[in-house]
Design a protein around this nucleic acid. Structure first.
Lengths: 345, 345
DNA sequence: CTGAAAGCGCTTACAG
DNA sequence: CTGAAAGCGCTTACAG
């Protein structure tokens, strides 16, 4: 009757039989529990090797009610900021023995909801989420209320959860103050989707420029995607509406690449004819030509911190919600020193 | 005796009790099996909603002996090529109902081995691997012999497995021929770690240049990491050994960024004083200044194809090993037209 | 169309 | 130090 159909997988029971002990003993050996005689341990290990046994962590975790797996959902890893973030999260989790189930929302609210559902059905121990632009408290309440989680980079209004991000208002103020100090008087803010991060950066920019009496006109504040194409579109829209400003603040370095490219296409040289500044300070930005002035937002730190908070929360779900806000720093480079040059000329 | 300790998770059995059916019926409803009366189905769904039941896919998969999860191990997602690849793989897998367990080898052989072990213990249905530079057949035999898998971008000698990659010899030949046709006679090849991909690109380059009688001297072939820093190091090493060549082929676009930056630091303008060409054609490369001549290697296609092959193999493990080799294409841009300009001047 | 029973591969008290 | 039994949350034949 019992004809073998699939090539039966070798289990802990086979190892037990082959080494003449019970399955419980094999289990102890597998988890390196001390209370097993040395001889027994050796025989078990030999049997494992001989039979080609592979530990089934899923079965083990089902019993222990943990998965040692964390879900990481970001929008799109093609953005260098998220790539850095992802690497930092993985590094921190891997060091603590966690694996990482990853998914990308593409900044689409429904896709995000679906992916969170999938991840949660896989019984991850926790979730790190970079919410899409449109995500609302309701979405998270529904999916994540029973799951330890931390939000990164963008917080969600009325959703009380652990959060790690940079101080975007301060980041904006750093860049605004710099541009004001340099003497620019007509500043545009280009690219990036509507989000708390964008709103905060704009607010900071305005605050930093205010000391110099400089304002950012609504027509000179243009939202697009957080991408190169977004940068190109924003600049084209800007040029259609009127004169070239003397400085452009970009939502992020990746937007700035598009902006610079579109400027050149219009015969305008960034860093000479118009100043350009930005946010994130991606690793490549200092190597661009001209080197890009940018406010560093430290994705590695955000990622590492988020992993740390999540693990703490998994171990103690009843903790109060915490907010970790990192301080940004400004790196001034050639792209925002046009006035100096013009004056020197 | 039975005091409840943890807030007991709600299971299929609770749903069954609450809706007055057996657990088997609930299971049928959950999987949308047709043979359940409409009224029953509704009652079950109401109970699910009321109790806040969450399906435990891990438990289900343990029973069915599938995990609907695939492991993706690449070296480092901060490289745009791998980021594109990753997004393409996820898109293809997600569409087929698979989740993705991800890990990064950082191009370290031992780390890769460890991560493969972790992923396999989680009982993924299959693995997509971009092998580290040093990975040998032995490593893969040991870990992956019983697991459906496909290799991407780099193949491993003597390991007979599914493979998807671009034709690197042809890619090299395209760039070599272009540089030769443009009239360059002294060409260097900079950056990138020793690997089948690098060897093939160099071979192709030489073959493409050979028609013009141009050779790449061993001293002008410099290996480094596949990174911006690698590019900087390679260029510095090149300048130390002798005269500036009239054209530089970079291992990849990310290397080219470092090379261009180091050239400028040495007072040499890329695209004017020396031609630069490269491989990958990252999305940002056409927007750089000067726009970068590059051979496209189509990570989206490689990723999508790899996912397709893996799913086929999961469904039919006894298939012969397949090799899918994609054709590269060259995009000529401003960075490699220095001679024209010089002649025009 | 629905129910009772066995089992996926582990771990965890509990005895001995 | 080791073994027999129960159970994690599902699915899958098999009866009815």
């Amino acid at each position: 009757m019992a004809v073998d159909r699939a090539p039966k997988r070798v289990t802990i029971l086979d190892v037990a039989a082959a080494s003449g002990v019970s399955r419980a003993t094999v289990s102890l050996v597998l988890r390196d529990e001390p209370r097993v005689a040395e001889g027994t341990r050796q025989r078990v290990h030999e049997a494992i090797e001989r039979l080609g046994y592979v530990y089934d962590r899923r079965a083990a975790n089902m019993r222990t009610q943990r998965s040692m797996t964390v879900g990481l959902v970001v929008t799109d890893v093609r953005n260098p900021f998220f790539a850095e973030l992802t690497m930092a999260v993985e590094k921190a989790l891997e060091a603590r023995g966690y694996s990482m189930l990853q998914a990308y929302s593409l900044d689409e609210r429904e896709r995000e909801a679906r992916l969170l559902g999938v991840v949660i059905e896989q019984r991850v121990d926790g979730v790190i989420l970079l919410p899409s632009t449109d995500t609302e408290a309701m979405d998270l309440q529904r999916r994540l209320s029973a799951v330890p989680h931390v939000l990164i980079a963008r917080s969600v209004a009325d959703h009380d959860a652990d959060y790690v991000g940079v101080d975007n208002v301060r980041a904006g103020r750093l860049l605004g103050k710099h541009l004001g100090d340099e003497g620019y008087r007509d500043v545009a803010f280009l690219g990036g989707p509507r989000s708390t991060a964008r709103g905060d950066r704009l607010r900071g920019l305005r605050s930093g420029l205010a000391r110099h009496g400089v304002k950012i006109d609504a027509k000179r504040n243009i939202q697009t995607g957080a991408s190169r194409v977004g940068g190109i579109q924003a600049l084209e829209a800007l040029l259609e509406t009127g004169a070239l400003p003397d400085a452009i603040a970009c939502y992020s370095d990746i937007v700035a690449i598009g902006v610079a490219s579109a400027l050149r296409a219009a015969g305008i040289e960034p860093g000479r004819d118009v100043a350009v500044g930005s946010f994130d300070d991606n690793p490549g930005s200092s190597l661009q030509h001209p080197a890009l002035t940018s406010v560093a937002t430290y994705p590695e730190r955000v990622g590492a911190e988020a992993a740390r908070l999540l693990i703490e929360r998994i171990d103690a779900p009843d903790l109060e919600a915490r907010r970790v806000i990192l301080a940004p720093t400004l790196s001034v480079r050639a792209s925002s020193t046009t006035l100096e040059r013009r004056q020197a000329a």
